[in-house]
């Protein structure tokens, strides 16, 4: 499995995403430029220039026409993917940690950080598709961090756009009604900060990753932990594979400790676990810094990882990846068939 190395960012990556069809990769990092790449050969299609600080997050709309970025320069920007033109800028009082298009509605979800006396908040903006350069700066939903919670840095929409799910810095996940922002449930599932939440294809369950060296598979409705994946390093990102029943975890020793140790002990590897059996089945090494984000190709044919080392490594799986099955899986399938 030879990776394609996407070299274009000058600093660490913060998020890497595929568009719905999987032909494009969008990436952001601590340099102020977002990049868009062809996933087929790793060629850079173009860049989105305009931010003046670390870009924490990027998302792309279902039709791949629009992209939104959130940055530490206290702003979020809407882009035209085709032209690379910045359509609109939201100015906010704190850095933007996570942005997401509502896949079911013309809405944008944002989590903004808690700094300088401001509390962290979850905001939802209406997306005006008729005139893209005129967007409302008034959120239609404004969910402040509850008093007994620590700020949420990660948010996402559940199936049908029913709930908003948030991951908090103290290891708590919380759930809100996407219609009115009403708080519905919370659960402490991790010991330390939640670093990522990625949903399954149907958005009925999701995987969380945490600095406490574990990842959890959680059911959206019941908020029950279905599976736990244990590793030996802080995890920065986790994703669920389509086609195969696997999950992919990425992380590694904290970036600030890396200089004092060698690459070997940093555990800068993407780890594959069996989703159901929770066994580790493989690792992919290559990065020489912690993996900050892992993203699956929507058709399950490969994955991309963005590292603290400034590289994106794009892997396409070989045949034996698809052939691999536990004996019990084979027998279960044959008995069903």
């Amino acid at each position: 499995m030879r990776p394609i190395l996407l070299k274009g960012h000058e600093r660490s990556l913060t998020q890497v995403k595929f568009n719905k069809e999987g032909d494009l990769i969008l990436s952001v990092g601590k340099d102020t430029v977002a990049s868009i790449w062809y996933s087929f050969n790793g060629e850079r299609l173009g860049t989105l220039k305009g931010h003046s600080g670390t870009i924490w997050t990027i998302d792309v709309s279902e039709d791949s026409k629009l992209a939104i970025t959130g940055s530490a320069d206290f702003s979020a920007k809407l882009w035209n993917v085709e032209t690379g033109e910045c359509l609109f800028t939201w100015s906010l009082e704190t850095p933007v940690r996570r942005v997401e298009f509502n896949p079911y509605k013309d809405e944008i979800l944002m989590a903004i950080d808690a700094v300088m006396g401001f509390n962290g908040r979850i905001l939802v903006f209406k997306l005006n598709k008729d005139n893209l350069s005129e967007q409302s700066t008034e959120p239609i939903l404004d969910i402040p961090t509850r008093k007994d919670f620590v700020k949420a840095m990660i948010v996402g929409y559940s199936y049908g756009g029913k709930y908003i799910v948030a991951g908090h810095q103290d290891g708590v996940i919380s759930k809100y009604d996407a219609e009115n922002g009403k708080f519905m449930a919370s659960e402490k599932i991790h010991e330390k900060q939640i670093t990522d939440i990625q949903f399954s294809e149907d958005r009925t369950y999701f995987i969380t990753s945490s600095k406490d060296k574990t990842a959890c598979l959680v059911d959206t409705d019941s908020f029950k932990v279905l599976k736990t994946y244990e590793t030996d390093a802080p995890m920065n990102s986790a994703t669920i594979t389509p086609v195969k029943d696997f999950v992919v975890l990425g992380g590694g020793q904290e970036a600030r400790d890396v200089t004092t140790t060698s690459a070997k002990q940093g555990k800068f590897e993407a780890r594959f676990f069996h989703k159901v059996f929770q066994d580790e089945i493989g690792r992919v090494a290559g990065h020489f810094g912690p993996l900050n984000y892992v993203a699956m190709h929507p058709n399950g044919s490969g994955y991309a990882s963005g590292g603290e080392d400034g590289f994106i490594r794009l892997h396409y799986f070989e045949k034996h990846y698809f052939d691999f099955k536990y004996d019990v899986e084979l027998t279960a399938n044959s008995s069903l068939a």
């Binding site: 199936y159 049908g160 294809e201 149907d202 958005r203 009925t204 369950y205 059911d219 409705d221 279905l226 389509p242 029943d245 989703k275 159901v276 059996f277 536990y326 019990v328 899986e329 279960a332």
Partner: peptide
Amino acid sequence: NRRRLLEEWSNYRASVERKLQQLNIKIDV
């Protein structure tokens, strides 16, 4: 143990799919 886990998982998925159908949410994965 693996067989049990796999069965639990497929049961869980089946129940989720039933629920989605009831809610009339189509997932065109």
